[in-house]
């Protein structure tokens, strides 16, 4: 009994897997940082949750089944989409001496690496956001944060780099990295955040 029914079950499973091949489906992957989130597909009154990397769900029937997707199939179906992934955005924090636009020695030493990174991003889209700590007047800090950001933005020479856009923004003292009260000198809040996309 068992020896007969087992191959039947297997055949059925293979048939299901094959029919799954032709269908619309999604696959959850591990993030580049090693974590795995989840995706939820809602269609025709059904909800399918996929929470394990390498597992998928079909999008075009009422099945709520989650199934494993072989790497070979991922490569075959998604090889080109995966290969056209852009360079991942990179974020740098530069810190300043109090009350001005002078970088700390440590941050100044980071500059060559940041410029080099920008060179590795084709059609770079760079955002530079300036911040201050809460020492002094909020209006003046808005201006100071802007001066810090403008100064950092000048590191990127569009005549030497493939840069599409450099967006400079000031958050003044409104976006503290380390929450403090007013009039608190906090080195980690005196910063410029550079994102290179």
């Amino acid at each position: 009994m068992t020896t007969i029914s087992l191959p039947k079950t297997l055949t059925f499973a293979v048939a299901l897997a094959l029919s799954g091949c032709a269908k619309s489906y999604l696959v959850l992957l591990e993030d580049h940082d090693g974590s795995t989130g989840k995706v939820i597909f809602s269609g025709a009154g059904n909800e399918t949750v996929v929470e394990q990397a390498g597992y998928g769900a079909t999008l075009d029937n009422n099945s709520k089944t989650v199934f494993k997707v072989e790497q070979e199939k991922i490569n075959k179906d998604f090889g080109r989409a995966l290969a056209s992934e852009p360079v991942l955005p990179e974020i740098f924090l530069l810190y300043f001496e109090t009350g001005g636009t002078k970088l700390t020695a440590e941050s100044a030493a980071l500059i060559p690496k940041i410029v080099e990174t920008a060179g590795k991003h084709p059609a770079a889209d760079i955002s530079v956001i300036g911040h201050t700590d809460t020492v002094g007047d909020a209006g003046k800090n808005e201006k100071l944060a802007n001066e810090r950001a403008v100064q950092v933005s000048r590191l990127f020479d569009p005549s030497k780099l493939d840069v599409k856009e450099i967006a400079v923004t000031s958050h003044g003292e409104k976006n503290l990295l380390i929450k403090t009260g007013d009039e608190i000198s906090e080195p980690r809040n005196r910063r410029v955040e550079v994102t290179i996309r």
């Binding site: 032709a22 269908k23 619309s24 489906y25 999604l26 696959v27 959850l28 992957l29 591990e30 993030d31 580049h32 974590s35 795995t36 989130g37 989840k38 995706v39 939820i40 597909f41 809602s42 269609g43 025709a44 996929v50 999008l59 075009d60 991922i74 179906d77 998604f78 989409a81 995966l82």
Partner: peptide
């Protein structure tokens, strides 16, 4: 997608529409 909606909870995924 043509048959539904994918919601995202901080992640990376692939979708194929046949």
């Amino acid at each position: 997608t043509p048959t539904g909606v994918i919601a995202v909870r901080g992640t990376r995924f692939l979708v194929k529409i046949e």
